[in-house]
């Protein structure tokens, strides 16, 4: 290993690329629904081609992540390091195929690159890698670490008097991790109100139903008692999601969690609520079947 180099102050915050524009979309509800179907087709296709990956938890959060990138976040796909960008942190790193697809749809990198998922030398690793993929904020895949990371990013924004907002997406199984609750306590303690957590409440984890593996009910209550503002929505409803995100941004003095009720595997009948498709790739025939349903 070479010795570390001396820090270059200008490399700490990226030099603004003047031409890069803030992403904006005027997509109607109908267009968002079409976008969601296209994202789902990409997810199924790319995981099928890779031969491994996690379709269930990618499909359940399609509306959540696409609402953020198309309607809520201030971001510049041509300048992923823009210092004032809103941050989206994917804590449940196994939903990487979803994040990659949304980033590609926004123009961070070519959509064609999605076909390289999980291949040797691809920028699209099985789980997210912040050093490789433009737009990816955190290296994840070991569950339970994203909320703490997000608090750090939010605190830095506050210290720098920057106006960005931080969003972090967790799985409901992921909330078994003690670190999530250490972070929940810290976020309320530090009054981090430039942070919104979203829990993809699809009620399944790897071994089966959350309530059978490790029951965490009353779930919303736990967050409330930890000092959080809780908003519950249908996580497949663009209108409800949009409204919740706007409301969350206005709540001051405490962090907000949006508990998004979703269906794991959403959109593909044989994957919906099926724990087998948590971490298994569809076969070629299954991809065909899924694409027909998502046409």
């Amino acid at each position: 290993m070479a010795l570390p180099k001396r820090m270059n102050p200008s490399s700490v915050t990226s030099a603004a690329k003047h031409k890069a524009e803030v992403f904006s979309s005027s997509a109607s509800l109908k267009e968002m629904e079409a976008l969601a179907r296209r994202i789902r087709r990409h997810i199924v296709t790319m995981i099928g081609k890779a031969g491994s990956g996690h379709p269930g938890g990618s499909l359940s959060a399609v509306e959540i992540v696409s609402t953020l990138y198309f309607r809520i976040l201030k971001h510049k796909p041509q300048d992923p390091q823009w210092a004032d960008r809103d941050r989206f942190i994917l804590s449940k790193g196994h939903a990487a195929p979803l994040l990659y697809t949304v980033l590609a749809e926004c123009g961070y990198f070519p959509v064609a690159e999605l076909a390289t998922l999980r291949q040797l030398d691809s920028r699209l690793q099985g789980h997210t890698d912040r050093n490789l993929t433009p737009g990816v904020e955190m290296s994840a895949g070991a569950l339970g670490q994203g909320l703490s990371f997000a608090i750090g990013v939010a605190l830095a924004g506050r210290l720098n008097a920057q106006s960005y907002h931080v969003y972090v997406l967790l799985g409901d199984g992921e909330c078994n991790e003690g670190q999530v609750w250490e972070a929940a306590m810290a976020a309320a303690h530090f009054k981090v109100d430039n942070l919104t957590a979203i829990v993809d409440r699809n009620r399944l984890q790897l071994d089966g139903w959350c309530c059978e593996v490790m029951d965490s009910e009353p779930f919303a209550q736990k967050w409330r008692f930890f000092g959080w503002q809780v908003i519950e929505v249908n996580g497949h409803d663009f209108t409800q999601l949009g409204r919740a995100f706007s409301r969350a941004r206005k709540i001051k003095g405490k962090p907000t969690v949006i508990i998004a009720h979703t269906t794991k595997g959403k959109g593909v009948s044989f994957m919906e609520n099926n724990p087998d498709f948590h971490g298994k790739a569809p076969t070629a025939e299954e991809v065909e079947m899924a694409l027909r349903e998502l046409a």
């Binding site: 491994s52 790193g93 690793q125 099985g126 789980h127 890698d129 895949g141 070991a142």
Partner: peptide
């Protein structure tokens, strides 16, 4: 472990 990558 293979395709799951660094985290796994």
């Amino acid at each position: 472990v293979g395709e799951d990558g660094t985290s796994h």
